[in-house]
């Protein structure tokens, strides 16, 4: 009885979560331009994608911005995390710690608006920067740095500093300690920080809406503006394409991880068998 209840609850939640996505995928193959009426199966919206320069341009721009802001966030976030975790006492530590976390809790609308006001003023005084890819990047790197710092900090806190001492003991100069030991050991955290900030940047509408200029419309902005004018099935098509790519990546990585874990278990069992 309890089991039945649990299972139906699970099904209900999954249905609620995934029905919209399934509908979106199904209707990307709908011949009718009306999103709500099914007529017949077609690939024409996918074919149309190739000629829709607004959409493809948006996609390319979004990928560019996400890639660069991801890298910038990880770079600055890592330095912030090191300063906060490794250097326990310095003037302004508490200030930096709360400032680093502020973008996490601040509503995007506020961050976007304040950035816009600042950039407009700066542009009026210096004639720079023109709103466009650079300003979007600035906004995304700002929030991304905060997220990356949080991810890297949690890894650094559990980092065994004896590893670094061992490296130094064996003849590493400080920069070699960082590149040969610290960096490889925190690499998983850097990769997850990058994936997180990449994703945050890729699907951001709010900051981009404030900070984009003419000719720099990211994909979420294109989709958002089209949705207001009435949906077009080519949006479904590009969404389906993205969903496909993401699903393949997620499935591949979980298969890889499961295999690595099984291999690790087997090798450990072997090691213990040989030791005894």
């Amino acid at each position: 009885m309890k089991n039945l209840f649990g299972r139906s609850w699970l099904i209900a939640v999954y249905t609620f979560l995934y029905i919209p996505i399934v509908t979106l995928v199904v209707y990307s193959f709908n011949a009718s331009p009306l999103v709500t009426v099914w007529s017949e199966f077609t690939f024409k919206w996918y074919a149309a994608l190739a000629h829709d320069t607004e959409l493809t341009g948006g996609l390319v721009l979004s990928l560019k911005v996400a890639l660069m802001s991801g890298l910038m966030s990880v770079f600055f976030g890592t330095f912030t995390a090191f300063a906060l975790v490794r250097y326990r006492k310095f003037r302004g530590r508490t200030f930096l710690a709360s400032m680093a976390n502020a973008p996490l809790v601040m509503p995007d609308v506020i961050v976007g608006l304040s950035l816009l006001l600042m950039l407009v003023t700066v542009q009026r005084w210096f004639g720079f920067p023109e709103r466009g890819i650079f300003t979007i990047l600035l906004g995304h790197a700002l929030t991304g740095t905060a997220y990356a710092a949080v991810v890297v900090m949690s890894r650094l806190r559990e980092f065994d500093t004896r590893m670094e001492e061992a490296a130094m003991d064996l003849g590493c100069k400080p920069w070699q300690v960082f590149t040969l030991v610290t960096l490889p050991l925190i690499a998983p955290a850097l990769i997850s920080a990058f994936l997180l900030t990449f994703t945050l940047s890729f699907d951001d509408v709010v900051l981009a809406a404030f900070l984009s200029g003419p000719g720099s419309t990211t994909l979420p902005l294109v989709i958002f503006s089209r949705a207001r004018l009435g949906l077009n099935p080519s949006i479904n098509a590009i969404a389906t394409a993205i969903i496909t790519v993401v699903s393949i990546a997620v499935i591949a990585s979980s298969i890889y991880q499961a295999r690595a874990e099984r291999r690790r278990q087997r090798e450990m069992a072997e090691a213990y068998a040989q030791a005894n």
């Binding site: 065994d160 004896r162 590893m163 001492e165 061992a166 003991d169 064996l170 050991l185």
Partner: peptide, 29 residues
Amino acid sequence: PPYQRPINMMFQSYALFPHLNVWDNVAFG
């Protein structure tokens, strides 16, 4: 500094480099 001393240490709970295999751990220094 530690990297210029002809002294080596075996650490408590060993501090072996987890990303390197046994051979590379020994060859590190």
